[in-house]
């Protein structure tokens, strides 16, 4: 009884690797955008750092649900 095995050739290996990288890259980039947005919003509206807090004090008070103090 003979047994036949197939191994992926170089092209399909490369395609699979590219797909995996792309998926990981998209996940990473989406996460990066969300984290960046959250950090920037936090810095602008919720930071206790005096310079930032005082600079954006009036802005916070002019937004419906952004707490100031």
């Amino acid at each position: 009884m003979s047994r036949v095995t197939t191994t992926p050739n170089a092209v399909s290996r490369h395609a699979a690797g590219t797909l995996a990288w792309a998926q990981a890259s998209v996940t990473f980039q989406v996460a990066l955008v969300l984290v960046t947005a959250a950090l920037v919003l936090w810095a602008l509206f919720f930071s206790n750092y005096p310079l930032v807090h005082d600079t954006f004090h009036e802005l916070r008070h002019s937004l419906y649900f952004v707490p100031c103090h």
Partner: peptide, 18 residues
């Protein structure tokens, strides 16, 4: 990534203002 680094720096302070 650059924006994230800036935001991290800005949030580094712990003082209170106003």
């Amino acid at each position: 990534a650059a924006a994230a680094i800036v935001a991290l720096v800005l949030t580094g302070g712990t003082g209170w203002a106003h």
